[in-house]
Design a binder for these strands. Structure first.
Lengths: 345, 345
DNA sequence: TCATTATTCATGAACGCTAATGTAGCAGTT
DNA sequence: AACTGCTACATTAGCGTTCATGAATAATGA
């Protein structure tokens, strides 16, 4: 609890003015090399750490960006956050992490907290919901970049995977392997991710001469406001798959909204002694860490989370430097398909 | 990019002094209710958001705690971070997230960044390494709480699972189910977690009349400085298990350092047509989201990450309020075993 | 030698806020 | 009428920095 030494203390110790010490430590000109090194030595000896609050006040920025994400248990989002953190640190920024847990109320609170904390900019993954708390960010004049999920009524920079392409790629892959009656198990969320995925699914079906109708997709009820929501997703996927199978329906391919659903699906299929890939194909989404080790190894879609994160942070930093403020940009990065045994035929 | 309005602007708008406006908005006494509501209305109309930098400077605190963690891809740590975030938000704090990626150099940089950013306190998960960057935190007079991994030479508050007990519980479970030749597959890290786990393993062995020697445990080489290190862990676990099996060794139970290793182990066992649990038992560690959905469902140890997080943050906040500064405290919370089919016998 | 310029440092102000202190007005007490 | 105590506000100072400006000293040129 030692009282932290200030510039003044260092200045007195070396017998110079506060200003000179500041210039010396910040590498500014107007200080001779000899005194600069003397000052640096003394500062180090006293364990001087600049007061970030005072520094932020006068500089008018906090060197911190807010990262508002729905759920850390989702591998995609923790990849995203990890990469943002790395990029930020390299640029001399730190990140303030706020979690919304897919809950609109918490999201509002998170945004407010970020604004209140004085972040210089925000990278966000929006939650679905009628009211839009993100406009508050723009009103406050804080640069904003959205990722992963689009908010159409908001004209801001947006970076994401190309989910329509992903939906098309995954669906085409199973159709090309002979599936004629595929079923899409999707998250029940009003987010662009789902919408685009279904659009790609539909386009692939129609390209292969299979008419699309709503019976080709079922929804897994989404859970909100649950810590580590992902822990329940496999369970939910299992339940939906089990219901489908006990209704007597036998799709020859399953496409799921994330690899946790596939995990639950595997269990449900096994209960009925339906073999993968002999009796039905399974295609995941997300390429989670466990997917290649399932039995059989799961074909899935590898998402470019790191690149999304890099592009998004780069854009935010550009905005913080006052560049490219005139128009907003939308970038969708192509995912990559990972074909494994679950779609072998 | 609208210039944010300051207290002064609000003050002029209502024709009162800056101080009165400040008192009114902060709910302090000395302002009549009528003027208070008038001020609040005007502030809201102008979209006034207090300048966090100025506020932090005068209050002498940033209302932010640093969370220094090794790896977000590890389910245990993202549980931990999620819970810390929630607790912090409730207490009016935000969290600054720093990642060390199990790399001592990055850890040093992360700690420095947190200190530089002026956090009020730090919750950390230390990396192994000879030099100790954490002393810098104490030297700077910043309250520190460590979790998950102990640094013996550092006299600070420590909160964790009771890993020795966990090691004992998991080992006893397989021994009670008839295993006489168990093998421990452990991470090759010089951290207290591993050390305690092995100690518990050993104690359980000896309690059951099985002599411990170093051939009873093998190490999986640890990867450092890799984003999402967990993605490789299953692969590494697989490799170690495969080598064991191809050497002809046939343990009647495997205990692994985390559930990803179990995932790799399953693959290796399957290649040799060794059945679980008929031919050998498998016991995991961590109860990851996928573990109960494996085939067979994995017996494992459920770690009290949320409680560790809650206790640790509560302790840090106590320190921030100047309570309990006299001595340091060590808390080890008992984990819970989750018995599933992989140890059925 | 003296004027000119470059170098090195000091001084003062400002960032936006909160806390301590000051003052005017008014009711109640003696 | 004079004093006390309270309310409701204003005034002033200060948090620890950085930046703009200014002064002193040393170096340069004729």
């Amino acid at each position: 609890m030692a009282k932290r030494s200030t510039l003044q203390v260092v200045a007195e110790a070396v017998g110079l003015s506060v200003n000179t010490v500041s210039r010396a430590l910040n590498g500014k000109s107007g200080v001779s090399e000899s005194t600069r090194s003397r000052i640096k030595a003394e500062a180090a000896r006293l364990g001087y750490v600049p007061n970030a609050n005072a520094r932020s006040l006068v500089l008018g920025k906090r060197s911190t960006i807010g990262v508002v994400v729905t759920d850390l248990a989702n591998p995609y989002f923790n990849d995203l956050v990890s990469e943002i953190e790395e990029q930020a640190l390299q640029a001399g920024y730190t990140i303030l992490l706020l979690l919304s847990d897919e809950d609109p109320d918490r999201e509002r609170a998170a945004i407010e907290a970020a604004l209140h904390a004085g972040v210089d900019g925000i990278i966000g993954v929006p939650v679905q919901g009628k009211s839009n708390p993100w406009t508050a960010v723009l009103q406050a004049g804080v640069p904003l970049v959205l990722t992963a999920r689009r908010v159409t009524e908001l004209d801001v920079d947006f970076f994401s995977n190309d989910n329509e392409a992903g939906g098309y790629m995954t669906t085409s892959a199973v159709l090309e392997r002979g599936a004629r009656d595929p079923l899409l198990i999707e998250e029940d969320m009003r987010i662009s991710t789902v919408e685009h995925r279904i659009a790609g699914f539909r386009r692939a079906l129609e390209d292969h001469g299979i008419p699309f109708d709503t019976s080709r997709r079922v929804f897994v009820p989404s859970r909100r406001n649950v810590r580590g929501a992902m822990h329940w997703r496999a369970e939910d996927g299992y339940r939906v798959a089990r219901d489908i199978l006990s209704s007597g329906r036998r799709p020859d391919a399953f496409l799921v909204g994330n690899d946790y659903f596939a995990l639950g699906l595997y269990s449900a299929l096994q209960e009925r002694n339906i073999r993968v890939p002999e009796d039905t194909l399974v295609m995941g989404w997300g390429d989670y860490a466990f997917s290649r080790f399932l039995n059989p190894p799961l074909s899935t879609l590898k998402l470019p989370s790191a690149e999304v994160a890099r592009r998004a942070t780069a854009r935010l930093f550009a905005r913080l430097n006052g560049e490219g403020t005139e128009d907003t940009v939308t970038v969708m990065i192509k995912p990559e398909i990972a074909l494994r045994s679950s779609t072998n035929r």
